[in-house]
């Protein structure tokens, strides 16, 4: 499912004294099966942008085209769109509400109008995808750990079989292992289902490791849109935007400053190790 964002501008409170431009002439083409990291400091427009992609907010001008159709047209089936473009909000576990885990995950597919059997099959599959064991299915979601709750909430969106899965800071508050597990799960879900993943993140390390394309938002505009390797070459600009480069990239810059002839096009620890060994002639 291709998504094209065409000259999209969005203003909050247009025509009032409180008017502010959250998105300013955004152009973006998202292809099938991409893993996109969306970064930008607080207030840069990331969350406003993802809310445009499934029609929660309507553009002030310009538009969003999904498979060639303008989602802002009268009569466009937004309900269907929201099943296809799944949005996992920040702290999604706050939205759990059912009496047991299984019922909670069934809520989404049931609302899509699926039969009971299909709904339950999907819920089962989604819970398996996020790695929740059968023994938890009939427990209250509120008795689970933070990481488990987070995964149940994500399963609730996965059960709608979205073609595009958007996650707004899904790892906030998780411990390092929980964070790695969740991001690994997303990678395997994408491999198995071919869905597109858009990961909104504050962690340069995470997007460097997992995404194959990074979109950087700054003051409502797209500042960079390229592979992680290319984006993180803009170290100084990224710092000015309140972002930065992965810790290991910064380390490589420090080595270079100290006279080591190392490349600074390094965004993961493993490539850094290889590069340093090479430069030291080992």
């Amino acid at each position: 499912m291709s998504i094209i964002v065409n000259h999209l501008t969005y203003r909050y409170n247009p025509g009032t004294a409180m008017e502010s431009t959250a998105l300013d002439d955004i152009n973006l083409k998202i292809e099938d099966g991409e893993f996109i990291g969306l970064i930008g400091h607080t207030g840069s427009g990331k969350s406003t942008l993802v809310q445009q992609l499934n029609g929660i907010l309507k553009p002030t001008s310009g538009g969003v085209y999904v498979d060639g159709a303008d989602i802002g047209d009268d009569g466009y089936d937004l309900k269907k769109l929201r099943g296809e473009v799944g949005l996992v909000f920040q702290y999604p576990e706050h939205q759990l509400f059912e009496t047991d885990v299984f019922k909670d995950v069934c809520f989404g597919p049931k609302n899509l109008g699926l039969t009971q059997k299909e709904t339950e099959l999907r819920a089962y599959e989604a819970l398996k995808q996020v790695g929740i064991a059968d023994e938890y299915f009939y427990q209250s979601p509120f008795d689970l750990s933070g990481g488990q709750k987070r995964r149940v909430a994500i399963a609730g969106v996965l059960a709608m079989k979205p073609k595009v899965l958007i996650l707004d800071e899904p790892t906030a508050g998780l411990d390092p292992k929980g964070r790695d597990e969740l991001l690994d799960k997303l990678t395997s879900i994408r491999q198995d289902t071919g869905c597109t993943i858009i990961l909104v993140s504050h962690s340069m390390e995470d997007v460097a490791r997992y995404a194959d394309r990074i979109v950087v938002m700054h003051k409502g505009r797209i500042a960079f849109d390229d592979t992680p390797m290319e984006v993180f070459k803009h170290r100084d600009e990224l710092k000015e935007m309140g972002l930065g480069v992965p810790g290991i990239t910064e380390t490589m810059y420090k080595l270079k400053d100290a006279g080591f002839p190392v490349s600074t096009d390094i965004i993961t620890v493993d490539t850094a190790v290889t590069e340093i060994m090479k430069v030291l002639g080992r």
Binding site: P176, G178, E205, G247, T251, V269, I276, M277
Partner: peptide, 15 residues
């Protein structure tokens, strides 16, 4: 213990 170290510490460890 499900924890991590800073990337620079990890890099030194692997070297």
């Amino acid at each position: 213990l499900s924890l991590d170290v800073p990337q620079v510490t990890m890099c030194a460890h692997k070297l």
